[in-house]
Design a binder for these strands. Structure first.
Lengths: 193, 193
DNA sequence: TAAGTTACAGAACACTCGTTCCAGATATCT
DNA sequence: AGATATCTGGAACGAGTGTTCTGTAACTTA
């Protein structure tokens, strides 16, 4: 009946995500999005609504595609202690790769927008809760496995790890040097002892 | 010889600081600054240069006025352990006060601008180092005082605390609830045991 | 009191912002 | 092939951006 779309929504979201991730919401112009996605302005507004709506779609996309992958080990590695250790070390290592300095899109967006934008605040809050719960599960597995002492306050420790991994992402966005980041993460992990 | 200024530079910087602190660099317009400071556009450009130059002046102002005060206890309380504990608990408590959600201007600015602006990156980096060194000093006092075990890696622990206090400020800007923030800070402080 | 210097007030600038609109191209279905 | 639907390219919009300019007011010094 009608002309089909000439673009792949997935790859448009990927490209849009990368700009927002790198520059933040306000500093990313619609022109930037047009240039980077190759998508026409009109098509963009027709398919995604305005800039803010596209941004929220991108946050969701990030959550499904990037966040899920970043925390795959945390969920899947059987020994909870190893799961937590690998998660932190990988996050720190990735954050140090030159030229990145992007941190986590949701953490960045929460810092930039949460105080004045309830929608973003809700997404950031919910994301934090999900991460917190993943740490709870990993800690429980570690205790069951015997690699983590059972006299820990699991909820408090999970909140500590959830907060701390945001800290790691904050520092890697700010461009902290590798040595500092390593000292930071290793001391975080010492909370498991 | 000439007409004297009708404004107080200190209070202009205070007001400008509060807007930048609340909204960030990009989201703060020159019009916002004019409205809030009461200062005329022309006077503003004559006295401070452009928006970016004013912003850098504001970062410096913040550093001298707010940051210094925030870390006064950390430097001054004789028992290093108590100094660290009070610093974290006060920061968490302040961050929870309703209506604030501002976090730390330098942390916020580092997140927003550091990846694309070397000047801000340098300021954020230097600020981190100063805080790190303050924690080194406090830890040393605590060890000398006997309230902190002497078998600690002081530098690594200082980096951990410096990173973690950024994490506290990040979470309070994002509007984390008090209970989460308390669990977070108390677990951080457990690193002193 | 008059001259000289500087701050002030606000209009005006060029530009970019997010958004909308419209003509034309391009595909599918009958 | 023809009708139809929707996507595409690009111009255009008004509002807002950071910045500059011009004329006037205000104060100090001679």
């Amino acid at each position: 009946m009608s002309r089909p779309r000439a673009f792949d929504e997935e790859s448009v979201l990927d490209n849009a995500m990368n700009i927002f991730w790198s520059k933040g919401f306000e500093s990313t112009s619609v022109q930037d999005l047009v240039n980077e996605t190759g998508l026409n302005r009109a098509s963009m507004y027709a398919s995604f609504g305005d800039k803010k709506a596209l941004f929220l779609r991108v946050l969701d996309h990030y959550s499904l595609k990037i966040s899920t992958k970043r925390f795959a080990d945390l969920r899947e590695i059987e020994d909870g202690r190893k799961a937590i250790e690998k998660t932190f070390r990988d996050t720190a290592k990735t954050g140090c790769k030159e030229g990145r300095h992007k941190g986590c899109l949701i953490v960045n967006s929460g810092m930039e927008l949460a105080p004045h934008d309830p929608e973003t605040a809700a997404i950031a809050h919910q994301s934090f809760r999900r991460v917190e719960d993943m740490f709870v599960a990993a800690l429980s597995r570690g205790i069951a496995h015997g690699s983590i002492s059972s006299d820990k306050n699991v909820r408090a420790l999970a909140r500590f790890f959830a907060g701390s991994i945001q800290g790691v992402q904050l520092m890697s966005r700010r461009g902290a040097d590798q040595e500092t980041l390593e000292d930071y993460t290793e001391t975080i992990l010492a909370a498991l002892n």
